[in-house]
Every structure is written in C-alpha cells, then in structure tokens.
Design a protein around this nucleic acid. Structure first.
Lengths: 235, 235
DNA sequence: ACGCGCTTGTGACCTAAATCACAAAGTCTG
DNA sequence: CAGACTTTGTGATTTAGGTCACAAGCGCGT
C-alpha cells in the first residue's frame, strides 16, 4: 500500500482528519483514536478512514487504534504543512478583508504575508498588520516574501488577469474565490471556491426533496403506493 | 436518458454552466453555443458538457448547438432558482458580514432575508439593510420570512448548536462555513465550505510537484533518466 | 432535392473511488 | 499463556463517473 500514489479523494479528506485530530489533541485525555471514532468525527465511514490512512503507511496498532499525536504529525507532514506557507491575497473587498483577518489560516500552517489591490484608496492602507501593495509590485514582493500561494478575492472580471500575474510571478498554487473560471499554464494548480455555486447545489436538492415530499403527500391522499420509496440524498 | 436521476457530479457542474451562459446572454450577439465553446468556458471537456446536458433533456440542435436563453432557463429551472430563495446567515463576524454584503447571491437567485448572532453588541445593529436578530428568535423569523437556507458563519464551537437550531426551525438546506463537522437529521442536507481545507489541499500538490521538480533536477545533474516522466496534476 | 459539413446524443468502454468482508495482529483477562 | 475480544490493513467486488467514438440529425448551399 505504501508508496502508491495517494488518490485525490483521499487528499481532500486528509485535512478533515487533521481537523478532528487537532480537537482530540487539545484535550490531552485521549492518546489514541480508532478508525471508527475518527470516522464519526469526520463524518465518513470507518473503512474509508482506514483505507485513506493506509496510503500514508501503517501507522495504526491493531486492537488499539491510531496514536493521536503521531498521526497528527504524519498527516501534517504529508500535506506539507510542517512549516508555515506564505500566502498572498489579491483583492481587498469584503471577502478579501475577511480572509485577511481569518484566524483559521495561521492555525493550520499558513501565513498571510502580502496583500494586493489596484484601488488607490486601498493601496497603502493597512489591513490587520499588513500594508496593502499595488498589484504591479506583485512579482517583486512575492520573491521577497517567498510567497507560494495566491488567493484571488477580486470581482470576476479581473480574475483572469490576476491569475496570469500570479503565474508570471512564479506562483504554482492558486485558490480562486472569484466567480469566474480562470485559465493557467499546466504547471499551475487552481482550486475554485464559489459561494453561490454551493448554494445552487443546495437549491437543487432542496427542490428535489420538496418535490418528493409533495408527491408522497399526494399519493398518500389518493391512497396509492409511494411513488419514490428510497429518496436518496447527496453524500 | 431523460428521467434518469441526475448524477451528483453533474449537479455540481450545472452552476458552472449557468455562470458561463449568463455571461454569453449578456452580450446579445451570440444566440447559440456549442458544447465545445461551453466546455472551454466552464473548464471541462465537451463530451462531459453534452452528457451533463442530456440528463436534462435534448435541448440542443445538431449541427447548431444550444440556444443560450433556452438552456439558461432550463438549468435555472432544474436548479430550482426560478424564484429567489430566502436565506439566513448566522454569525456576523468578518466572514458573515462579507457574505451578507456579497452581491453574487442576489444575482444568482438568492435573497439574504435574515441575519442572526448571539453577541449583544451586534444584535440590533444593521448590516446592509437588514437588522441582526438574536439567535433565539430564529424559529419565528424563519417562519415569518419563509427562509429555506441557513448559512453558518460562526466559529467552530457553536456550529453544531446552530445547525440543530436550524434543523429545529424546519430548515432543510445548510451551508456550513465553520471549520467543524456538524451532524444533522437525515432529512437535512449540509454542504461544507472550509477555506483552510482548500489551502491544505493546494499545499499537498504544491509540495508534491516541488518534490518532483527537485528529483528531476537531481537526476538531471547525475545524468540519469527522469524518475517520474508524467507528473499528473489534480483535476 | 440532395449531399456536405457540423454538432448533438448516447451506447460502449475505461478509470477511480467506495464498500465489503475477513485474515492478521495486537491487547486484556483470568 | 491460552483464548476472547478489538481493531487494523487490504484484497475483492461494486458503484459512480469520465472518456471515446460514431451514428443520427440538422442547416445550408447549390
């Protein structure tokens, strides 16, 4: 199992396990955790947890479980979070400001080390402890500060341009909050987080479940059998 | 193909197509769009677009493509976004405020119609045009305003409690921004958006690609063959 | 009316992920 | 130290999703 490439789906779950393990590590009582407990906390099933962890190596003890601290370290290492990664935020509207002051980043191995905008009324001001710089200085400051992650928090229109500037500055990892698809060179990884897309997905299931409930209600009144016995839900 | 249940993966992409179609609809020049164009705009491949759209029905014309307006309407309808869905935000810290003033929601079929917090220095104040109410009034106001979607933007600790209150108030769709896994009754759908999880996933690939680059560099210097010829990337 | 070029819609195939189920390996108890 | 009990680690199987490739359908020009 060891040395096999880690599936994407597993990578996406590792941070969730990390979250659970951090909360376990806080109250020092529990030194060890079973796949079942971890599964409960992460909201997945136990078999998945075991398979996921087995990709990292055999870090558990049969009959006992996983050592919390040790597993914590191994996942942290696997995710490349043993030292803080410097990140930059581009765009300091409402969302950019919220991200800049979000405590969760520092707690999980990231350091916001530069802020950029193009609006003259924002450039030069401080957000938190950091001065906002002009986008034109991106390349220099990225090099200076050793920034490796770019966070796009602009409106959709300038997102593509910003992505190109980031790629040009040597950034290989981009997190895009702008509601727009950006194209980048093949050696750059982009992840997209779109707030309204998530709501739209919810809306779909909301509507469907409501339709099912209505249909069931109607058929109940008519005395016919249930038109859709198993109403599947996402996840 | 019609009447088959729509795959989850397809549902997750429909909003992306919607986004692309909206931008096409804006400039009135292009009345029709091919699966190939749409694929470009959405950042996926053409076959996937066609298969996805075929789940909704045969809305395309061979040799021509899809009528932009008509497809726009069909996807909107399928997602249940023909009328605005009222949503509530719980927690008005930095993130909650950013969400409350985020324009994208209104543009895509959602209406923020209630805000809640427990902090006395926040309750009673206005954010945007809406007065912040106390969490204890959740159930009443949800009923009054017909809220169907709950957005959790609290710190992790109170997230579970808030989720329970939402479920108790009859909300069936929850979008959770708090970095915590929440448990809800089986008839409630939760989607999680975790900002630091996304960064952690980026970190993993960042590190791996860097490791590959380093290995390649080393082997180049030693004159050996490339240790990992095809460096796969996510997505 | 007919043939050519374009684009859809979809079966067939392939790949990745989830789930199952159980042997292997450990702890604990008397 | 033997036997009962726990929990891991992983092959085998199932399910879901992605990709391929091409026949069917449509518009247009002649």
């Amino acid at each position: 199992m060891r040395n096999r490439p880690i599936p994407e789906a597993t990578v996406a779950r590792l941070p969730v396990y990390l979250q659970a393990l951090l909360s376990l590590a806080e109250d020092r009582r529990q030194m060890t955790v079973s796949s079942d407990e971890l599964a409960q906390m992460a909201g997945v099933n136990a078999a998945k947890v075991r398979k996921d962890l087995s990709y990292l190596g055999s870090y558990g003890t049969r009959g006992v479980g996983y050592d919390v601290e040790y597993l914590l370290y191994q996942i942290t290492r696997e995710l490349g979070l043993t030292q803080d990664l410097p990140a930059a935020i581009i765009g300091l509207g409402n969302l950019g400001r919220a991200l800049a002051s979000f405590k969760g980043f520092a707690e999980r191995g990231f350091k916001i080390s530069a802020l950029f905008d193009v609006d003259d009324s924002v450039v030069g001001t401080n957000v938190g402890r950091i001065k906002v710089r002009h986008l034109d200085d991106l390349k220099d400051i990225v090099a200076e500060e050793g920034v490796v992650i770019g966070i796009i928090a602009t409106p959709p229109a300038p997102a593509q341009l910003v992505a190109e500037r980031l790629a040009d500055a040597g950034i290989k990892s981009i997190l895009n909050f702008a509601p727009a698809v950006v194209k980048v060179p093949p050696d750059v990884t982009v992840r997209k987080v779109d707030l309204s897309i998530e709501l739209q997905i919810l809306s779909f299931y909301q509507q469907r479940n409501q339709a099912i409930a209505t249909a069931r209600e109607a058929s109940r009144r008519l005395g016919t059998s249930d038109p859709s016995p198993q109403a599947r839900r996402p996840h």
